[in-house]
C-alpha cells in the first residue's frame, strides 16, 4: 500500500530541513540569516518572561518559522499534569504562535519528584488512557494540535501489551494528535530492544507524521545511546531516506544538543536532509 500523502503543511513550518537552535548559535543566525527552512527550540528555555532569551526568540520568529519542542511536560505520568508547567507553555505558545508544538511519549514525574529524563512507558491500556487524557488536556488548553515524539528506549516492560507503533496509532486515533517521528530514536530503540526498524516504520500511522527528527547517537557498551552529540549515522540516513520514500516529504529537523559544533556543520547536515527531501516527488516549499 502506498501511504504517501500530500505534505501535511503545518502552519508556518514547511516540508523542508531545519535545525535545532541552541543559545550558542542565536547571534550568528540573526547576523548571517542562513537559508534554512525553519528552526526548533526547547520550550522550557524560553519560559522566562523577558530578557535576552525572549528577545532572541522574538527576533528569530521574525525571520524563520519556529517549532516549540517541550521536554518537561511528562505526558505519560500517572496523576495530573503539572498545571504550572502547562500554563507557562501556554503563555509562550500564545506569545510566539509557533508553527508546531511537540512533546514526548514518555514520563519523567513520579509523585512529586521529577527525574527530568525521557523515560519509557509500558504500552498498556492504562498508559494509553493516561497519555490520551493528558494530550487531550494540552490540546484543549492550547487550542491546537500537538505532536508526540517517540523516544530512544534503553528498556522495555514485560507488561506491555502493544508495540510502540500500535500505541501511537491508538493515541493518534483517540486524541487527534500528530506524530513527531524521530528516525534516530527508532534506530536506537530497535537496536537496544531487538525489533526491526523497518517493520516499525511500516506500522506507524503515516498520515499523522507531521515532523521528523534526525540526530546522532553513540555506542556505550552493548547499547546505542541517543546522545545528540554527533553527526547523524549512515544507517540512520538510510532509514530516513526509506521513511521519506514511504511518507513523502515532511519537515525534518537536525538535533544537536551536546558538544554542539559550528553552525556550518549543522547547516551541512540539514543540507543533506534537504537533498533527500528534494529527491522525493512529495516535496513542497
Amino acid at each position: 500500500m502506498n501511504d504517501r500523502i500530500p505534505c501535511a503543511d503545518p502552519v508556518g513550518v514547511p516540508c523542508a530541513a531545519g535545525i535545532g537552535l541552541r543559545t550558542c548559535h542565536f547571534r550568528e543566525i540573526l547576523g548571517r540569516r542562513p537559508k534554512i527552512g525553519w528552526v526548533e527550540v526547547h520550550s522550557e528555555n524560553f519560559f522566562g518572561a523577558g530578557g535576552q532569551p525572549r528577545h532572541w526568540l522574538e527576533r528569530i520568529c521574525e525571520h524563520y518559522p519556529v517549532s516549540l519542542h517541550g521536554v518537561g511536560l511528562s505526558l505519560g505520568s500517572a496523576g495530573p499534569l503539572d498545571r504550572d508547567h502547562l500554563d507557562r507553555l501556554t503563555r509562550l505558545v500564545r506569545h510566539i504562535e509557533p508553527g508546531l508544538v511537540s512533546e514526548h511519549l514518555s514520563w519523567s514525574m513520579a509523585g512529586q519528584r521529577h527525574l527530568n529524563e525521557l523515560l519509557p512507558l509500558p504500552y498498556t491500556d492504562e498508559a494509553l488512557a493516561v497519555v490520551c487524557a493528558h494530550v487531550d488536556q494540552v490540546q484543549d488548553v492550547l487550542g491546537r494540535q500537538i505532536l508526540v515524539e517517540n523516544i530512544s528506549r534503553y528498556l522495555g516492560y514485560r507488561q506491555s501489551t502493544m508495540t510502540e507503533p500500535e500505541f501511537l496509532a491508538e493515541l493518534v486515533a483517540r486524541s487527534g494528535c500528530g506524530l513527531l517521528l524521530d528516525v534516530n530514536n527508532v534506530y536506537v530503540s530497535a537496536h537496544n530492544l531487538g525489533f526491526d526498524a523497518r517493520d516499525y516504520l511500516e506500522a506507524i500511522p503515516a498520515a499523522a507524521v507531521a515532523e521528523i527528527h534526525l540526530a546522532g547517537h553513540a555506542r556505550i557498551g552493548g547499547m546505542l545511546v541517543d546522545t545528540h552529540g554527533t553527526r547523524v549515522a549512515d544507517p540512520v540516513w538510510e532509514l530516513y531516506a526509506a521513511t521519506i520514500e514511504r511518507l513523502g516529504a515532511r519537515p525534518t529537523l537536525i538535533e544537536w544538543d551536546n558538544d554542539i559544533p559550528p553552525l556550518a556543520v549543522l547547516l551541512g547536515e540539514a543540507e543533506r536532509a534537504a537533498g533527500i527531501l528534494e529527491a522525493t516527488d512529495g516535496i513542497a516549499a
Binding site: 513520579a110 527525574l115 509500558p122 534503553y154 528498556l155 516492560y157 514485560r158 530492544l193
Partner: peptide
C-alpha cells in the same frame, strides 16, 4: 503493578540508590 506503582518504583530505584536492584518486569532485548 499499576502505572503509578511502576513509576514510583522506577523513580525510587533511580534516585534512592536502592541496592536491592531494579524494578520488576524490565526488558532489554
Amino acid at each position: 503493578a499499576s502505572l503509578h506503582e511502576l513509576q514510583m518504583a522506577f523513580a525510587e530505584a533511580v534516585l534512592d540508590d536502592a541496592p536491592e536492584g531494579l524494578p520488576e518486569g524490565l526488558l532489554a532485548g
